[in-house]
Amino acid sequence: MMSHEPEPSPTTCGAPLLQRGFDPYRDNAGTLVGIAGEDFAVIGSDLRLSLGFSIFSRDQSKLFKLTDRAVLGSSGCWADCVSLNKFLEIRLKTYGFEHNQPMSTKAIAQCCSTMLYSRRFFPYFAWNILAGIDEDGKGAIYSYDPVGNFERVPYQAAGNSGPQVLPFLDSIVGKKNQSNPDKAPITKERAINLIKDIFISAAERDITVGDGTHIIVITKDGLEEIRLDLRKD
């Protein structure tokens, strides 16, 4: 008669073996939204830095100003976000010293993609959106995945509330899923107000979004920063 008793676990000197896991990533959350217009780009992030139900900071922007024509938003593992942007800042400074001019937004987009791809076997746990003005003075939004695949899009949302926000952008900005959409291009003021409304709404549904919103408007004249308070709970 066969026995169905479980096999004893391996032991060392009578004590059971313990398996230790290694997890180098932590999701510190964050939400990013970017909208490009004819001659401007607007990007926004929330200000809450958290881990689960713990809040580490209520005033931590996820936007990094690279040049006066380009801003990178990063969310996810905060250590990886800071590391990526520090290395990118070094590359931009080196380029400026060698060429006596700042790197263009299109070149920054490719540079960021190359840096992410170089870490594809141990990728940065970071969702990135690059917003800026291109060589023709038009607004540009570049969307990335963690291993460097990227594309230029008219709008994008990433981070924890990205799946909630993107359908809203598809309808209002992309003019999709509407019977008689207004084809007029979006204005800068409209884009700013939309991003404000998006974060106010996201804060009601997502515990990782709150405290405040940091918005940067990019035009040929430079950067303009806007802050908006959100709910604190």
Results as ranks from 00 to 15, higher is better:
85 N>A: 01
71 V>G: 07
125 F>N: 09
49 L>M: 04
84 L>H: 06
63 L>F: 01
153 V>I: 12
39 D>C: 02
91 R>L: 03
61 S>K: 01
120 R>Y: 06
156 Q>L: 15
95 Y>H: 08
81 C>P: 08
143 S>N: 15
121 F>R: 07
174 G>S: 05
56 F>A: 09
92 L>E: 13
116 L>V: 13
156 Q>T: 08
97 F>T: 10
140 A>S: 13
71 V>P: 02
98 E>R: 11
142 Y>L: 00
64 F>L: 08
93 K>Q: 13
106 K>I: 11
151 E>F: 09
41 A>D: 15
104 S>Q: 11
174 G>E: 04
76 G>M: 05
118 S>F: 06
46 D>K: 04
134 D>P: 07
52 G>S: 02
35 I>V: 06
81 C>Q: 02
145 D>Y: 13
121 F>W: 15
48 R>P: 03
137 G>I: 06
92 L>Y: 11
92 L>P: 12
147 V>L: 09
48 R>F: 13
162 G>I: 00
44 G>Q: 07
133 I>C: 05
139 G>V: 04
67 T>D: 11
131 A>S: 15
62 K>R: 09
71 V>F: 01
59 D>E: 07
57 S>E: 10
92 L>V: 08
162 G>M: 00
70 A>Q: 11
56 F>Y: 14
41 A>M: 11
144 Y>K: 00
160 N>Y: 13
159 G>Y: 06
158 A>K: 02
112 C>P: 12
154 P>L: 00
74 S>W: 15
166 L>I: 05
172 I>V: 13
104 S>H: 10
55 I>Q: 00
77 C>N: 14
148 G>H: 14
115 M>D: 10
170 D>P: 12
85 N>V: 02
57 S>N: 06
102 P>S: 04
114 T>C: 07
134 D>R: 02
107 A>Q: 15
40 F>D: 03
43 I>E: 00
100 N>G: 15
42 V>E: 01
174 G>Q: 01
76 G>F: 07
75 S>W: 06
89 E>M: 15
82 V>T: 14
101 Q>F: 12
60 Q>T: 06
71 V>Y: 00
149 N>M: 03
128 N>Y: 07
164 Q>R: 12
160 N>F: 14
152 R>L: 05
118 S>C: 09
67 T>H: 02
146 P>G: 11
96 G>A: 15
160 N>C: 07
141 I>F: 01
35 I>Y: 00
155 Y>L: 02
63 L>R: 00
141 I>S: 00
81 C>H: 15
65 K>D: 10
68 D>M: 10
108 I>R: 01
167 P>V: 04
67 T>I: 06
47 L>E: 08
65 K>T: 12
171 S>F: 11
129 I>T: 06
63 L>E: 09
126 A>D: 01
82 V>A: 08
133 I>W: 07
151 E>H: 14
139 G>I: 08
37 G>S: 14
173 V>C: 04
69 R>P: 09
55 I>F: 11
54 S>L: 05
137 G>C: 06
159 G>L: 04
67 T>W: 03
137 G>D: 03
146 P>R: 01
51 L>R: 15
59 D>F: 13
76 G>Q: 07
147 V>C: 06
150 F>R: 05
73 G>T: 01
148 G>K: 03
132 G>T: 08
45 S>E: 10
44 G>R: 00
165 V>H: 03
50 S>R: 02
